[in-house]
Design a protein around this nucleic acid. Structure first.
Lengths: 129, 129, 129, 129
DNA sequence: GTGGTCTAGACCACC
DNA sequence: GTGGTCTAGACCACG
């Protein structure tokens, strides 16, 4: 079934959450090139989301090169340049980290304090690997 | 004068930028307890923003406990519980970091890779301090 | 239809009356979790009140956790923690009663006198239940 | 010194708090007929309140018959009808109690529940008398 | 002067 | 259609 969920309370627009779900699946390799993705109506029913919203997400995913459409058939995962993907992942994470560190600084946390939290988090997430 | 500016093109609502400006000033200690802040009309004129917008920002700051109002007199900085702020900050940062690291893992980034990005970001944000 | 009315001459701000109306409905269980409430424009038309005023009431209800919004869809009743509400109610009432009894004592009312007033009031408010 | 304090955070207008302070003192008998009360300027300095605010409070107290003024000399406590005072105290307490019980009912507290809280509060306030 | 409420009407993003 | 932001301008109570 689906590997992502919609959080209706987060304030993040639904179509963006859908986009993020597919981007992540493509970047992580969970979805491979030319693999079909759910039809607009099917996904809409599944996520309890208006089909218009799914359509918009798919359109955006198409223009950013993550999927392609075969009219009358459906949407499929587009082939990805491996290096480009890695760079993209690197970029996204760096952006998110920068934002977090900026908030931390705003809250007067010392860099050492942050490093400690970071080590803690990494060991939990990557623990025993 | 004012220590923050409004970016009218960032897409971030003006009232939120004002809130962020005061939050930071209170947390970092730039503004001290019981210190008066600019009147609604004055700040509105200063930032070229409608007084209603300033009023909303001040109201929100009041409900989150950063300022208090004395009708007919003005708004003032509320006393802060230092320890509570620190704990809250620690918690928020840990939450955000956890989310980022989880996405990083989904993107197949190694923990060493993340650590390098992190060191890079911290040195940029806290550089030369 | 609506279970509360606005008194435009009471001196109590309209948005607070709206808030009180929904708070009561949520706490008493008249409105259940995830149930939609009237749209801002609709309620505004219904109560002959400016949509901005309704919006403010809904926003306040959101920050205090009684409702949540799904932009583009509408506002919905938020799930409530029953026990937390009960404890909060107990605490609030006890506070208010303590204040009143303290003033009564200042006014040299005897405890028996207060008990009589109390019995009178309760029978009026809870009369026949 | 003064038997009441101004709470600047309560949202209750300062002049009303001053009025309440004097009303209470008169009703409880703390201040006797023809006793002088502080001058406007003196009380203003003492409470760190604008003299205009004190003046307004005194004016209101005068029209409601709690004090009288001797121009050029000052304000004095007016003689009170004992029975009228008792009735007034009774009335005020009944009003406050009614409000509290109404809130309690709004919060779905049973009348027995309220009675228990009440007994608790009374025993604490009037305990051992 | 100050804050607080309310109206009227505009524009935008989202569904 | 929905909510969300913002402006302009009015009126009131408080100090």
């Amino acid at each position: 079934m689906l590997w992502f969920k919609i959080n209706y309370y987060s304030g993040i627009p639904v179509y963006q959450q859908i986009i993020a779900g597919f981007e992540e699946a493509v970047i992580s390799g969970k979805l491979k090139a030319d693999e079909p993705i759910p039809s607009i109506r099917e996904l809409g029913k599944n996520l309890k989301v208006n089909p218009n919203t799914i359509a918009r997400a798919y359109r955006d995913l198409e223009t950013s090169g993550y999927v392609y459409s075969r009219p009358g058939i459906g949407y499929f995962i587009a082939a990805q340049n491996k290096q480009a993907i890695e760079e993209k992942a690197h970029y996204i994470i760096k952006e998110e980290l920068t934002n977090t560190i900026l908030t931390a600084k705003k809250y007067n946390l010392s860099s050492n304090n942050i490093k400690n939290i970071m080590a803690d988090v990494i060991s939990k997430v990557y623990g025993g690997e």
